[in-house]
Nucleic acid binder design. Structure first.
Lengths: 141, 141
DNA sequence: CAGAATCCAAGCGGATACTG
DNA sequence: CAGTATCCGCTTGGATTCTG
Protein backbone atom coordinates (compact mmCIF):
# COMPACT_ATOMS: atom_id res chain seq x y z
CA UNK A 1 0.00 0.00 0.00
CA UNK A 2 1.61 3.18 -1.16
CA UNK A 3 0.07 6.57 -1.38
CA UNK A 4 2.04 8.93 -3.54
CA UNK A 5 4.91 10.60 -1.81
CA UNK A 6 3.69 13.91 -3.03
CA UNK A 7 0.92 13.65 -0.52
CA UNK A 8 3.19 14.64 2.29
CA UNK A 9 4.13 17.88 0.69
CA UNK A 10 0.55 18.59 -0.22
CA UNK A 11 -0.64 17.81 3.26
CA UNK A 12 1.57 20.41 4.81
CA UNK A 13 0.72 22.94 2.18
CA UNK A 14 -2.99 22.73 2.85
CA UNK A 15 -2.79 21.82 6.49
CA UNK A 16 -5.75 23.64 7.98
CA UNK A 17 -4.58 26.64 9.93
CA UNK A 18 -2.62 25.98 13.10
CA UNK A 19 0.77 27.12 11.99
CA UNK A 20 2.31 25.89 15.21
CA UNK A 21 0.34 23.88 17.66
CA UNK A 22 2.21 23.27 20.84
CA UNK A 23 1.44 20.79 23.54
CA UNK A 24 1.41 23.59 26.07
CA UNK A 25 -1.75 24.92 24.46
CA UNK A 26 -3.44 21.61 25.10
CA UNK A 27 -2.27 21.17 28.63
CA UNK A 28 -3.95 22.16 31.84
CA UNK A 29 -1.60 22.76 34.69
CA UNK A 30 1.14 21.03 32.73
CA UNK A 31 -0.84 17.86 32.33
CA UNK A 32 -3.39 16.03 30.30
CA UNK A 33 -6.34 16.00 32.70
CA UNK A 34 -8.30 12.79 32.79
CA UNK A 35 -11.64 14.55 32.79
CA UNK A 36 -11.26 17.38 30.31
CA UNK A 37 -13.60 17.71 27.30
CA UNK A 38 -10.71 17.14 24.93
CA UNK A 39 -10.11 13.72 26.37
CA UNK A 40 -13.78 12.85 26.02
CA UNK A 41 -13.94 13.87 22.39
CA UNK A 42 -10.60 12.26 21.69
CA UNK A 43 -11.88 9.01 23.13
CA UNK A 44 -14.92 9.16 20.87
CA UNK A 45 -12.93 9.96 17.78
CA UNK A 46 -10.14 7.50 18.43
CA UNK A 47 -12.51 4.79 19.53
CA UNK A 48 -11.88 1.54 17.74
CA UNK A 49 -14.31 2.40 14.94
CA UNK A 50 -14.73 6.17 15.16
CA UNK A 51 -11.94 7.15 12.80
CA UNK A 52 -12.87 4.47 10.29
CA UNK A 53 -16.50 5.56 10.14
CA UNK A 54 -15.63 9.23 9.79
CA UNK A 55 -13.20 8.38 7.03
CA UNK A 56 -15.72 6.24 5.25
CA UNK A 57 -18.11 9.18 5.19
CA UNK A 58 -15.47 11.61 3.96
CA UNK A 59 -16.31 11.07 0.32
CA UNK A 60 -20.03 11.22 0.54
CA UNK A 61 -23.13 10.00 2.29
CA UNK A 62 -23.51 6.31 2.91
CA UNK A 63 -26.35 4.09 3.96
CA UNK A 64 -26.26 1.71 6.90
CA UNK A 65 -25.46 -1.30 4.77
CA UNK A 66 -22.83 0.57 2.78
CA UNK A 67 -21.08 1.64 5.94
CA UNK A 68 -21.13 -1.87 7.24
CA UNK A 69 -19.53 -3.17 4.08
CA UNK A 70 -17.01 -0.35 3.76
CA UNK A 71 -15.67 -0.57 7.26
CA UNK A 72 -14.73 -4.20 7.19
CA UNK A 73 -14.97 -6.14 10.37
CA UNK A 74 -17.34 -3.89 12.27
CA UNK A 75 -20.25 -5.61 13.95
CA UNK A 76 -23.77 -4.25 13.75
CA UNK A 77 -23.66 -3.62 17.43
CA UNK A 78 -20.57 -1.45 17.27
CA UNK A 79 -21.74 0.24 14.08
CA UNK A 80 -24.94 1.37 15.76
CA UNK A 81 -23.19 2.31 18.98
CA UNK A 82 -20.40 4.29 17.35
CA UNK A 83 -22.77 6.06 14.99
CA UNK A 84 -24.95 7.09 17.90
CA UNK A 85 -21.97 8.56 19.70
CA UNK A 86 -20.75 10.46 16.65
CA UNK A 87 -24.27 11.70 16.01
CA UNK A 88 -24.65 12.88 19.59
CA UNK A 89 -21.34 14.71 19.23
CA UNK A 90 -22.72 16.51 16.22
CA UNK A 91 -20.16 15.03 13.88
CA UNK A 92 -22.46 12.79 11.89
CA UNK A 93 -25.91 13.44 10.55
CA UNK A 94 -28.59 10.76 10.27
CA UNK A 95 -31.32 11.19 7.69
CA UNK A 96 -34.29 8.87 7.56
CA UNK A 97 -36.33 8.46 4.40
CA UNK A 98 -39.66 6.92 5.23
CA UNK A 99 -40.02 4.54 2.33
CA UNK A 100 -40.52 0.82 2.00
CA UNK A 101 -38.02 -0.53 2.50
CA UNK A 102 -36.69 2.17 4.79
CA UNK A 103 -33.62 4.14 3.81
CA UNK A 104 -31.22 5.83 6.20
CA UNK A 105 -28.33 7.96 5.09
CA UNK A 106 -25.38 9.03 7.16
CA UNK A 107 -23.38 12.13 6.38
CA UNK A 108 -20.75 14.31 7.94
CA UNK A 109 -21.97 17.51 9.52
CA UNK A 110 -19.97 20.69 8.83
CA UNK A 111 -18.25 20.03 12.14
CA UNK A 112 -17.52 16.47 11.15
CA UNK A 113 -16.13 17.67 7.85
CA UNK A 114 -13.70 19.94 9.67
CA UNK A 115 -12.55 17.09 11.81
CA UNK A 116 -12.07 14.78 8.86
CA UNK A 117 -10.00 17.43 7.14
CA UNK A 118 -7.54 16.96 9.96
CA UNK A 119 -7.88 13.20 9.93
CA UNK A 120 -7.09 12.68 6.26
CA UNK A 121 -3.52 14.03 6.35
CA UNK A 122 -2.87 11.86 9.36
CA UNK A 123 -4.24 8.80 7.62
CA UNK A 124 -2.22 9.65 4.55
CA UNK A 125 0.93 9.60 6.60
CA UNK A 126 -0.02 6.35 8.29
CA UNK A 127 -0.78 4.74 4.96
CA UNK A 128 2.61 5.84 3.70
CA UNK A 129 4.51 4.39 6.63
CA UNK A 130 2.34 1.51 7.73
CA UNK A 131 4.18 -1.14 5.75
CA UNK A 132 7.59 -0.11 7.04
CA UNK A 133 6.34 0.07 10.60
CA UNK A 134 4.51 -3.22 10.64
CA UNK A 135 7.09 -5.30 8.81
CA UNK A 136 9.49 -4.59 11.61
CA UNK A 137 11.70 -1.77 10.57
CA UNK A 138 14.46 -1.24 13.16
CA UNK A 139 13.43 1.30 15.79
CA UNK A 140 14.25 4.91 15.06
CA UNK A 141 17.77 6.18 14.79
CA UNK B 1 -12.29 -10.86 13.53
CA UNK B 2 -12.88 -12.32 10.14
CA UNK B 3 -11.13 -11.07 7.06
CA UNK B 4 -13.46 -11.61 4.18
CA UNK B 5 -11.52 -9.73 1.57
CA UNK B 6 -8.18 -10.07 -0.01
CA UNK B 7 -5.87 -7.09 0.01
CA UNK B 8 -5.29 -6.24 -3.59
CA UNK B 9 -2.73 -3.51 -3.76
CA UNK B 10 -2.11 -3.83 -7.44
CA UNK B 11 -5.65 -2.82 -8.10
CA UNK B 12 -4.78 0.70 -7.08
CA UNK B 13 -1.75 1.07 -9.29
CA UNK B 14 -3.26 4.02 -11.08
CA UNK B 15 -3.93 7.05 -9.00
CA UNK B 16 -5.84 10.15 -9.96
CA UNK B 17 -4.28 13.53 -9.44
CA UNK B 18 -4.29 14.11 -5.72
CA UNK B 19 -4.87 17.74 -5.06
CA UNK B 20 -5.92 16.74 -1.59
CA UNK B 21 -5.81 13.55 0.37
CA UNK B 22 -8.81 11.52 -0.63
CA UNK B 23 -10.26 8.45 0.94
CA UNK B 24 -9.84 6.60 -2.32
CA UNK B 25 -6.10 6.68 -1.78
CA UNK B 26 -6.54 4.85 1.48
CA UNK B 27 -8.97 2.28 0.26
CA UNK B 28 -8.32 -1.15 -1.11
CA UNK B 29 -10.95 -2.45 -3.45
CA UNK B 30 -13.23 0.34 -2.28
CA UNK B 31 -13.03 -0.74 1.33
CA UNK B 32 -11.12 -0.44 4.52
CA UNK B 33 -9.63 -3.92 4.82
CA UNK B 34 -9.56 -5.38 8.28
CA UNK B 35 -6.04 -6.73 7.90
CA UNK B 36 -4.10 -3.99 6.15
CA UNK B 37 -1.01 -2.44 7.76
CA UNK B 38 -2.75 0.90 8.00
CA UNK B 39 -5.38 -0.54 10.25
CA UNK B 40 -2.74 -2.10 12.45
CA UNK B 41 -0.80 1.12 12.86
CA UNK B 42 -3.99 3.10 13.28
CA UNK B 43 -5.04 0.79 16.07
CA UNK B 44 -1.72 1.33 17.80
CA UNK B 45 -1.80 5.08 17.43
CA UNK B 46 -5.44 5.52 18.32
CA UNK B 47 -5.24 3.04 21.15
CA UNK B 48 -6.66 4.49 24.32
CA UNK B 49 -3.29 5.88 25.41
CA UNK B 50 -1.21 6.00 22.24
CA UNK B 51 -2.08 9.53 21.21
CA UNK B 52 -1.70 10.88 24.72
CA UNK B 53 1.76 9.40 25.17
CA UNK B 54 2.98 10.61 21.80
CA UNK B 55 1.65 14.06 22.60
CA UNK B 56 3.29 14.07 26.00
CA UNK B 57 6.62 13.34 24.37
CA UNK B 58 6.17 16.02 21.73
CA UNK B 59 7.90 18.67 23.80
CA UNK B 60 10.84 16.66 24.97
CA UNK B 61 12.07 13.48 26.55
CA UNK B 62 10.34 12.24 29.65
CA UNK B 63 11.07 9.62 32.25
CA UNK B 64 8.73 6.81 33.20
CA UNK B 65 7.40 8.62 36.24
CA UNK B 66 7.03 11.89 34.40
CA UNK B 67 5.01 10.21 31.69
CA UNK B 68 2.80 8.59 34.27
CA UNK B 69 2.11 11.92 35.92
CA UNK B 70 1.67 13.83 32.68
CA UNK B 71 -0.81 11.46 31.14
CA UNK B 72 -3.31 11.48 33.93
CA UNK B 73 -5.26 8.35 34.56
CA UNK B 74 -3.01 5.87 32.83
CA UNK B 75 -2.22 2.71 34.75
CA UNK B 76 1.30 1.36 34.97
CA UNK B 77 0.24 -1.68 33.04
CA UNK B 78 -1.06 0.29 30.10
CA UNK B 79 1.85 2.69 30.26
CA UNK B 80 4.32 -0.16 29.89
CA UNK B 81 2.23 -1.94 27.29
CA UNK B 82 1.59 1.10 25.13
CA UNK B 83 5.20 2.23 25.33
CA UNK B 84 6.37 -1.20 24.23
CA UNK B 85 4.05 -1.11 21.25
CA UNK B 86 5.13 2.38 20.23
CA UNK B 87 8.75 1.37 20.67
CA UNK B 88 8.31 -1.73 18.55
CA UNK B 89 6.69 0.45 15.89
CA UNK B 90 9.77 2.64 15.88
CA UNK B 91 7.87 5.68 17.07
CA UNK B 92 9.35 5.95 20.52
CA UNK B 93 12.91 5.51 21.70
CA UNK B 94 13.80 4.02 25.10
CA UNK B 95 17.10 4.91 26.74
CA UNK B 96 18.28 3.19 29.88
CA UNK B 97 20.84 4.77 32.18
CA UNK B 98 22.30 2.14 34.46
CA UNK B 99 22.44 4.06 37.69
CA UNK B 100 21.03 3.57 41.15
CA UNK B 101 18.23 4.22 41.15
CA UNK B 102 17.73 3.36 37.49
CA UNK B 103 16.75 6.05 35.03
CA UNK B 104 14.87 5.45 31.79
CA UNK B 105 14.10 8.17 29.28
CA UNK B 106 11.56 8.03 26.52
CA UNK B 107 11.77 10.13 23.39
CA UNK B 108 10.19 10.40 19.99
CA UNK B 109 12.11 8.90 17.10
CA UNK B 110 12.31 10.92 13.87
CA UNK B 111 9.41 8.82 12.66
CA UNK B 112 7.46 9.52 15.81
CA UNK B 113 8.15 13.20 15.39
CA UNK B 114 6.63 13.13 11.91
CA UNK B 115 3.55 11.42 13.22
CA UNK B 116 3.15 13.89 16.07
CA UNK B 117 3.39 16.73 13.59
CA UNK B 118 0.16 15.41 12.13
CA UNK B 119 -1.38 14.74 15.50
CA UNK B 120 -0.92 18.22 16.92
CA UNK B 121 -3.18 20.03 14.44
CA UNK B 122 -5.83 17.41 15.06
CA UNK B 123 -5.55 17.81 18.81
CA UNK B 124 -5.62 21.55 18.40
CA UNK B 125 -8.92 21.30 16.61
CA UNK B 126 -10.34 18.93 19.17
CA UNK B 127 -9.26 21.19 22.00
CA UNK B 128 -10.94 24.11 20.26
CA UNK B 129 -14.25 22.32 19.77
CA UNK B 130 -14.35 19.90 22.67
CA UNK B 131 -16.36 22.13 24.96
CA UNK B 132 -19.02 22.84 22.37
CA UNK B 133 -19.27 19.18 21.47
CA UNK B 134 -19.44 17.82 24.97
CA UNK B 135 -21.62 20.41 26.66
CA UNK B 136 -23.93 21.58 23.95
CA UNK B 137 -25.51 18.96 21.76
CA UNK B 138 -26.41 20.93 18.68
CA UNK B 139 -26.55 18.29 15.96
CA UNK B 140 -25.63 19.64 12.58
CA UNK B 141 -29.12 18.95 11.38
C1' DC C 1 12.68 4.33 40.22
C1' DA C 2 11.11 1.40 36.66
C1' DG C 3 8.73 -2.26 35.70
C1' DA C 4 6.75 -7.26 35.91
C1' DA C 5 3.23 -10.20 37.73
C1' DT C 6 -1.26 -11.10 39.38
C1' DC C 7 -6.18 -10.95 39.87
C1' DC C 8 -10.51 -9.15 38.58
C1' DA C 9 -14.19 -6.21 36.44
C1' DA C 10 -15.88 -3.98 32.38
C1' DG C 11 -16.89 -3.94 27.82
C1' DC C 12 -15.93 -5.57 23.16
C1' DG C 13 -17.60 -8.26 19.66
C1' DG C 14 -19.96 -12.53 17.66
C1' DA C 15 -24.05 -14.98 16.96
C1' DT C 16 -28.74 -15.11 16.93
C1' DA C 17 -33.46 -13.66 17.02
C1' DC C 18 -36.92 -10.25 16.45
C1' DT C 19 -39.26 -5.66 14.80
C1' DG C 20 -41.19 -2.03 11.59
C1' DC D 1 -33.49 -2.52 4.76
C1' DA D 2 -32.21 -0.80 9.11
C1' DG D 3 -31.94 -1.51 13.00
C1' DT D 4 -32.82 -3.32 18.41
C1' DA D 5 -32.33 -6.93 22.06
C1' DT D 6 -30.06 -10.68 24.36
C1' DC D 7 -26.79 -14.16 25.74
C1' DC D 8 -22.02 -14.97 26.38
C1' DG D 9 -16.90 -16.02 25.59
C1' DC D 10 -12.90 -13.52 25.41
C1' DT D 11 -9.92 -9.68 25.47
C1' DT D 12 -8.78 -5.22 27.45
C1' DG D 13 -7.78 -2.47 30.98
C1' DG D 14 -7.41 -1.14 36.11
C1' DA D 15 -5.76 -1.79 40.87
C1' DT D 16 -2.61 -3.92 43.59
C1' DT D 17 1.47 -6.22 44.87
C1' DC D 18 6.20 -7.62 44.32
C1' DT D 19 11.14 -7.21 42.51
C1' DG D 20 15.95 -5.59 40.77
Amino acid sequence: MTVSNEVNALERAEMPSTATVRLADLLTDGRLPAACPSRVVLDHVTSRWGVLLLLALSEGDLRWGELRRTVEGISEKMLAQTLRTLEADGLVDRTVTATVPPRVDYALTPLGRELVDHLLPLMGWIADHADAIVTGRPPGR
